[in-house]
Amino acid sequence: MAAAAAAGAGPEMVRGQVFDVGPRYTNLSYIGEGAYGMVCSAYDNVNKVRVAIKKISPFEHQTYCQRTLREIKILLRFRHENIIGINDIIRAPTIEQMKDVYIVQDLMETDLYKLLKTQHLSNDHICYFLYQILRGLKYIHSANVLHRDLKPSNLLLNTTCDLKICDFGLARVADPDHDHTGFLTEYVATRWYRAPEIMLNSKGYTKSIDIWSVGCILAEMLSNRPIFPGKHYLDQLNHILGILGSPSQEDLNCIINLKARNYLLSLPHKNKVPWNRLFPNADSKALDLLDKMLTFNPHKRIEVEQALAHPYLEQYYDPSDEPIAEAPFKFDMELDDLPKEKLKELIFEETARFQPGYRS
């Protein structure tokens, strides 16, 4: 834990890192770190609560700039109880001085990944967590956004079992017609939660990839272990087919990539493993919904509104309290091709509203 900075004593240090967030945020305490930044909790002297502050230093890398800009653009436009918001952003007053960006968010005690390492969940908890994931996802999908990296560590939890989806750095506007060349190379989302079509096709992607990830998360809540822990690309596919069985001819016809289709045709026939054999203690309604989410063919996979209306979630289902976005989200430009200098300018502009004396 960093010592509390005395008023006016300059930035606090946390594990050798400068955290320049005073005077409003003090009493910093280390939480963890990701690929390009550290997260601390801090005391907000204005709202009198502890908050989470993520320090991001992305400006050396085009990919990190892209992810940072995506996350900020999306989260500043989203407003939903099951999606983490941005409360404040701290950065230098000029673009030349801006080396880091500090993002202030609600402090959540833990995440689903940490929880599943230590606790076996009751059916009631599984049901409530799944409902909140789908409630947040309904809003995301209504904005025409794909999260693309749903996994237990991106689901934040607090002691009252509130759940918030975080990390929109890989999110995209849904565009089933656009052929994202190089899709697989830039697709760094965790393999275990990846839909089979991501490994088999490169053309376009749809909201059904997020539903697949939610199915993987439900299976993990039922058993405290990942359902498809593939060691590499082909191993991942083999794990999936080992449980779902061989795809039907109709399902194979959806695979545009001939090499991928021929690979699947070359494999020995596998039978589907019954879900109640894998999860003998699970609620039968939970397994019915799991089956509809972990469907090989993305066109037959359940959609988020149908999933919310499934009998497993009937005690929570309330369409009048499951809000959607006001308007579909649009990125003005494809960020993939922009140089990091341009992305830095866009991050600077996007964060201006939090600067003292800002006038829109």
Rank of each mutant, 00 (worst) to 15 (best):
G8D: 02
G8V: 15
V14D: 15
D20C: 05
R24F: 04
T26P: 10
T26M: 11
N27Y: 15
N27F: 05
N27V: 08
E33L: 00
M38C: 07
S41Q: 07
D44M: 08
K48Q: 10
R50M: 14
K55D: 08
S57A: 00
E60C: 02
Q62H: 15
C65N: 02
L69Q: 14
E71H: 00
L75I: 01
L76G: 00
L76V: 00
H80Q: 15
I83T: 00
I90G: 01
R91W: 01
K99D: 07
V101R: 04
V101K: 10
Y102S: 08
Y113H: 09
T118N: 01
T118M: 08
L121W: 09
D124F: 05
H125A: 11
I126L: 10
Y128E: 06
Y128A: 03
F129N: 03
L130F: 05
Q132T: 07
N144A: 03
V145C: 02
K151E: 10
K151Q: 14
N154K: 14
T159G: 10
D162T: 00
I165A: 10
D167H: 05
D167V: 15
G169S: 11
L170D: 08
A171K: 09
V173I: 08
D177K: 04
D177L: 12
H178M: 10
D179M: 11
G182W: 15
E186W: 01
V188T: 02
W192I: 13
A195R: 08
P196C: 12
L200C: 09
K203D: 10
K207E: 09
S213M: 04
L218I: 12
A219E: 14
E220W: 06
M221P: 06
M221T: 04
L222P: 10
R225I: 03
I227F: 15
I227H: 07
P229K: 06
K231M: 14
Y233T: 13
L237A: 10
L237G: 11
N238I: 15
H239N: 15
H239G: 10
H239S: 10
L252N: 04
K259T: 05
L265R: 03
P268N: 02
H269F: 02
K272G: 08
P274R: 07
W275I: 10
F279M: 09
A282S: 14
D283G: 02
K285N: 15
L289F: 04
L294V: 05
L294I: 07
T295C: 06
N297F: 08
R301W: 03
Q306R: 08
Q306G: 02
Q306W: 01
A309C: 00
H310V: 06
H310G: 05
Q315K: 14
Y316E: 08
Y316H: 01
Y316S: 00
S320C: 06
D321H: 02
E322N: 00
P323H: 14
K330L: 02
F331G: 03
D337Q: 07
P339H: 09
K344S: 09
I347G: 09
E349M: 02
E350N: 01
Y358M: 12
